[in-house]
Amino acid sequence: MLFILLLMGFFIAKEFWDVCITESRGKMLNISGHNFEISETNCDFIAKEDHINVLASKPGQTKQTPIFVYSPGRDPMPVIRSTGPHSIRISIADISSEILRMNNWEGLSIEYDIGEITYPSQTAETAK
């Protein structure tokens, strides 16, 4: 019964409450031929969680793909720099934990320079 009540509550919450707030933190255009946007998602139902999303898109396209998602540490924002015509490097001093890390996306090679990961995960979703 508890499970049914929870499901009902979650359905109502999902449909009618905006429990996740996503705010854009900035856009970077034309880095190695791609556009990037960094956003922060904060979800709050019972547990409270923060995630930073690095989204990539091709010029002229609106569809964005998350290439790097993490729970922030002390340093909230990554820096994205071009390292070649088809490669970028995402740098950040520290993060709490990784959720998604893509190493390649649509012909773009993505390197990471992460100083410290408080909770390293062996099973963080990666894409070669």
Partner: peptide, 25 residues
């Protein structure tokens, strides 16, 4: 209870983590 909604609602939920919660959380 805390993780159930994260699993249900968030695309960022961590199915590999116990209860789907971030380590910090």
């Amino acid at each position: 209870l805390a993780g159930a909604f994260a699993r249900f609602n968030s695309s960022n939920a961590k199915p590999d983590e116990p209860f789907g919660l971030d380590a910090d959380t």
